[in-house]
């Protein structure tokens, strides 16, 4: 069967190199070093956690920020299909999130309906679709990262408080509802 999801998750999305400092300061090296002293206070276990987080934060707050055309793009060479898989006894597997990411990207990519019809007709390639989906994903993530940067740098968000990241997500429910009611 033709599974778009399976194709999509083999790819690795990118982010603006200018926001790399967020990855450096908020995530632990490598992803496995839970006990590394240097990593104390770093709140995400690895890069893709921050990426996922930023995506949802952007999504829930409707922060769709297009990457500047001149932006140098970076990725962390870790395809989506591996995101959330863990062998650590301290962590749970959350690979199921991949599907939610996918659904969200589909839902939020404007005009993707036509592309999908074209895809099924064989007139467009999976690669072309994936490219469009990545733009959506990267732009929401970009929006989320910018929002996070603003919260930390301008609104003095104390990231050492355990609930800081969760609170941002919970607060954005209000945002989502506002947006929906406006629409």
């Amino acid at each position: 069967m033709d599974k778009l999801f399976d194709e999509w998750k083999k790819s690795t999305p990118k982010y603006d190199k200018n926001l790399e400092h967020l990855f450096k300061s908020l995530t632990r090296k490598g992803g496995g070093a839970e006990t590394d002293r240097e990593d104390k206070g770093k709140i995400f276990s690895n890069n893709y956690e921050l990426y996922i987080y930023a995506f949802f934060l952007g999504l829930y707050n409707n922060k769709y920020e297009e990457l500047p055309e001149t932006a140098e793009l970076k990725d962390f060479s870790h395809a989506i299909q591996y995101w959330g898989s863990t062998k650590s006894a301290l962590r749970n597997d959350f690979t199921n999130i991949q599907e939610y990411l996918f659904m969200a990207v589909i839902a939020k990519t404007e005009g993707i309906e036509d592309d999908l019809i074209e895809l099924d007709k064989g007139k467009k390639t999976v690669e072309a679709i994936k490219k469009r989906l990545h733009v959506t994903m990267q732009n929401y993530t970009n929006g989320g990262l910018l929002l996070l940067e603003k919260k930390i740098q301008e609104e003095n968000l104390d990231i050492t408080i355990g609930t800081s990241m969760l609170d941002l997500i919970l607060q954005s429910k209000q945002e989502t509802e506002n947006i929906l009611s406006e629409a």
Partner: peptide
């Protein structure tokens, strides 16, 4: 923060 992922709390909205 970990539970945002491990417990899918991030899907709350």
């Amino acid at each position: 923060t970990q539970d945002l992922f491990d417990k899918n709390w991030i899907l709350v909205n």
